[in-house]
């Protein structure tokens, strides 16, 4: 943990938010899910979401989402200022309904994946990804 004065001040300013709200959440997430599903019920499970428990670098966090037979999967970073990350659409010729990408996370938060399944129903999975200062371990 070594910081130049400028970095220290910058981190201190950013830290103000962390101090008050170490776990970030954005109220817009429920609305975005409702918009995606058209208000339909969303079951828990049936979606595979792979993400690290603790991000090695919050600026580029590898995630993979998949759901068998899905026609679309929406990914939200529930604590980012702008939660929508991507919506992957799978056509009838798609060999697999799975996608990988890297996302930027503003802090510790849940990553949420909502899938529209082949029968038109919806399912979701979420995982908490921690973004930490690091160091001092071992």
């Amino acid at each position: 943990m070594d910081f130049t004065r400028r970095e220290t001040l910058a981190l201190g300013a950013g830290a103000a938010l962390m101090t008050v709200l170490p776990f970030r959440a954005n109220a817009a997430v429920d609305d975005l899910i409702a918009e995606f599903t058209g208000g339909a019920a969303v079951a828990d499970g049936g979606v595979d979401l792979t993400a690290p428990e603790i991000a090695e670098n919050g600026n580029t966090v590898p995630i993979t989402v998949g759901a068998e037979g899905a026609t679309a999967i929406m990914v939200l970073a529930a604590g980012n200022p702008t939660p929508p990350v991507a919506t992957f659409k799978f056509g009838p010729m798609a060999g697999a309904q799975s996608a990988s990408t890297r996302i930027r996370l503003a802090g510790t938060q849940d990553v949420v994946a909502v899938a529209q399944l082949a029968d038109g129903s919806f399912a979701r999975a979420s995982k908490t990804v921690k973004v930490t200062i690091g160091g001092c371990g071992g």
Binding site: M1, D2, F3, T4, R5, T8, L9, L11, G12, A15, A16, M18, T19, P22, K130, T132, I133, G135, C136, G137
Partner: peptide, 18 residues
């Protein structure tokens, strides 16, 4: 280095959660 009291707390909170 120099740290604000607030930032020292953020560090302690971060490590404590680990």
């Amino acid at each position: 280095t120099e740290m604000t009291g607030e930032f020292i707390k953020v560090i302690l909170e971060d490590v404590a959660d680990n």
